[in-house]
């Protein structure tokens, strides 16, 4: 199990365990803010200037995500949009959260969304967001961070401001404490 950001996962080759072939590359990372998990990825074809692939990869069909590849059992794990869950087959591309302004309920900006942080192993749990603070430094806020999310903004509880971490090491502990404070555990 390891922590990876969505930008580390994007661009990884999708490799079949049985075939040893790189059948595609990760394009979009699609996650559920509510469930706090990865629901799937869209794909690019392999090749320097290659573009979008029609097929998608739902999270259930992912065998493992590692630092160098996303593993699937075989090519049948890649499905057409019609055979995939709606969120994966037809992702709401206008809800791309990168660069989203992070606003507290009280109206203060904590910065912008720089990345998503996931705990990968055999499943993909979303642990938090990597943010770019107003001053330009990097920080991390734990999930469940958002009350609502759109393609332009993330609204978070006021309390989130106290939980901004400087590095990933602090994020794990912050997640548990944050959830306790929110009354979720």
């Amino acid at each position: 199990m390891l922590l990876m950001t969505a930008s580390q996962i994007r661009g990884l080759p999708v490799v079949t365990v049985q075939g040893g072939e790189d059948v595609a590359e990760v394009r979009d990372v699609i996650y559920s803010p509510e469930a706090g998990r990865l629901v799937g990825v869209t794909l690019n074809k392999r090749g320097f200037l290659a573009g979008r692939s029609r097929d998608v990869l739902p999270a259930e069909a992912i065998h493992a995500i590692g630092q160098d590849a996303v593993m699937v059992l075989d090519e049948s794990s890649l499905v057409t949009p019609e055979d995939a869950p709606e969120d994966v087959g037809h992702p709401a591309t206008e809800r791309n959260v990168l660069e989203d302004d992070i606003l507290t309920e009280g109206g203060a900006s904590l910065g912008k969304v720089a990345d998503l942080v996931l705990l990968v192993g055999s499943s993909g749990e979303v642990v938090g967001y990597q943010i770019e603070k107003p001053g330009g430094e990097r920080g991390y806020i734990p999930l469940p961070a958002q009350l609502s999310v759109s393609g332009v903004a993330l609204v978070v509880p006021n309390m989130t401001e106290e939980f901004v971490q400087d590095d990933l090491v602090g994020l794990g502990g912050a997640v548990d404490e944050f959830r306790t404070r929110l009354g979720l555990t």
């Binding site: 072939e21 790189d22 590849a69 593993m71």
Partner: peptide, 10 residues
């Protein structure tokens, strides 16, 4: 060895 192909041996 679980599989082997042009990209990698798994």
């Amino acid at each position: 060895v679980l599989g082997s192909g042009s990209y990698a041996v798994v």
